[in-house]
Amino acid sequence: MGSLLKNRGWVIGALAVAILFPFVLPNAYFLHILTLAFIWMIAVYGLNLLAGYTGYLSLAHAGFFAIGAYALGLLTVKTEINYWLALVLACLITSAIGAVVGLVALRTREHFFAIYTLCVGYIIYLVIDKWDGLTGGVRGLIGIPVPSNIGPLSFETPLSQYYLVLFFLIFTVLVMYRIVHSLTGRTFIAIRNSEDLAQTIGISTMKNKLLVFVLSTFFAGLAGALYASFIRFIGPDIGYITIIFDLLTYLLVGGIGTLAGPIVGTFLIVAVSQSLQFLQDYRMLIFGPLLTLLIIFYPRGIVGAYYDWRMKHTAKKVKRTRKEQRYFESETVDAEKKVKEG
């Protein structure tokens, strides 16, 4: 309970900063970058639930991100249905494809799963790239509309889009928090620890893994759809494998298998990349080794390292108070003795 209260401070602080930011620093460029970062965070949360909490490293998630983006783009551009309906459909389509892929992919484990999903991701990319008639191929898809009005709310301005994406990010974090802190979340973690053990305590591993996989593709799709209506132009390269490497870097730096990791990692890397603009094409010169070093020395990223530090800190405190208590007790005993003897 104590840790919950400690964390609450962080949560309220981060929320306040996110909400007040556009007023404190009314800069269109920053607003754009932050909105994009929020979109990536949603996708990273999806990946985190699967790789971080359940132990399955999916390399197909750039593909699912692209499916979400293209589903929304095609639905709004080609069929001109209502934006919100298209958003819901885009998420559902991504999840449905996720379910089909998951049904087969999850029968494999470890390396096979990683390689399998890598190939699935590549197939998705190639199909988008080559299927000219549907996706526009390398020319991409242009003219994706902004979200349509809800009553008096309009999403024409970057500011309103910022808050819309922030709303979805908060929704994502809330859902993740509730899943992780529940029996369902404990079930996922049990699968990550040992699938054999999980089975023998009565957990249907396939059913639960499929649930996680579909959920995580749902959030990848949601992020993709939001991306499409924010940037309003999409090309096949949003499904390329480099995107999944970016997402992985965000997750690893922040802390895989932690709730705050996706936000911390994405924000940090995006901020650093922005201040190192000249590095754009070479950013992997730094992030590549960073990824490797982190996994060797801090496998749970910044947030994980912070937790470990805090845990040690409190453990020390407990020890100290225990010692003091014992010291105090022995003193009182001594004193009592003296009183008796005296």
């Binding site: 870097t249 992997m284 590549g288 080794p289 960073l290 990824l291 490797t292």
Partner: peptide, 9 residues
């Protein structure tokens, strides 16, 4: 993940 990091670098 480490291998992917090397690849990117």
């Amino acid at each position: 993940i480490a291998a992917i990091g090397i690849l990117l670098f």
